[in-house]
Amino acid sequence: MGRTVKLMVCCGSGIATSTHVAAMVREYMEERRIPVTIETCSVQDLANRLTGCDMILSTTQVAFGTEIPVFSGVPLLIGVGEEEVLEAMAVKMKEISEG
């Protein structure tokens, strides 16, 4: 098993939808035994909290440019294209973890 991937989940407040989405991701990754630590924050805070972060998942628009891969959390909220996002994230995480 590779290193643990750090994922930052963000939303408008850092409390509501991010918490929900984070739980979904955690469950999905645990089932696939992908080592991940997940933190949540608000989109305003995001820029200040990127140290050591490998991936971003956001339910709102991320306003600034960053090297870190950003995934959209909206499919997870609306239940359309949910699997695809999770699958894409899992692939990326494996890559980072074993890379």
């Binding site: 939303c11 408008g12 409390i15 509501a16 939808t17 709102t60 909220l77 609306i78």
Partner: peptide, 14 residues
């Protein structure tokens, strides 16, 4: 800003 529903007929207004 973004959709506040989280599925299962539930929404978070906050």
């Amino acid at each position: 800003e973004a959709f506040t529903g989280i599925g299962n007929g539930t929404a978070l207004v906050h």
